[in-house]
Amino acid sequence: MIITNYMRSEHRACDELFADAEKSVIDGDFTKAEEQFLKFSNETLRHFKKEEDELFVVFESITGNSEGPTRVMRFEHEQVRGVIGKMAEAIESRDKDAYLSLAESMMILLQQHNMKEEQMLYAMCDRVIPQDKKEETLKNMDKIEL
């Protein structure tokens, strides 16, 4: 379960960053919110990159399937990236209502995506990838920068 545990804790960390930013927006502190949102989006995008450039690639090479689950996940990442862009605009223009609306869709979107990964994809990775390869993948993911 080392893949699942590693990736899951990243999901949780992003959730917390997200909640911090939202709280600041509600309090009306946009300077702080901007900073926190940037942290959230950087961490999320880095997490996506880890998946797309490392984990998914390993999974695809082992299962020989690049059209299946990983393709769906990549597509969902694009959707999340889209919302991140819109949220950044909302925060820049200090639009509280727009930000909070987007935050709602983002949270629901991201949780749906994360749940699929945690319940299905990571669990499959943990099953099909050999132990030493898993450790190597984790190391490589740690190195990934935005």
């Binding site: 299946g68 689950p69 769906v72 996940m73 969902e76 959707q79 869709s105 629901i108 979107l109 749906q112 995506h113 749940m115 699929k116 319940q119 299905m120 994809l121």
Partner: peptide
């Protein structure tokens, strides 16, 4: 739609906003 499909194990389960867009 989302809940049933993803619980049945379909990676392809559409996102809720793709089922009926807000």
């Amino acid at each position: 739609v989302w809940f049933h499909l993803s619980n049945q194990g379909y990676m392809e389960a559409p996102m809720m906003h793709d089922i009926i867009h807000p």
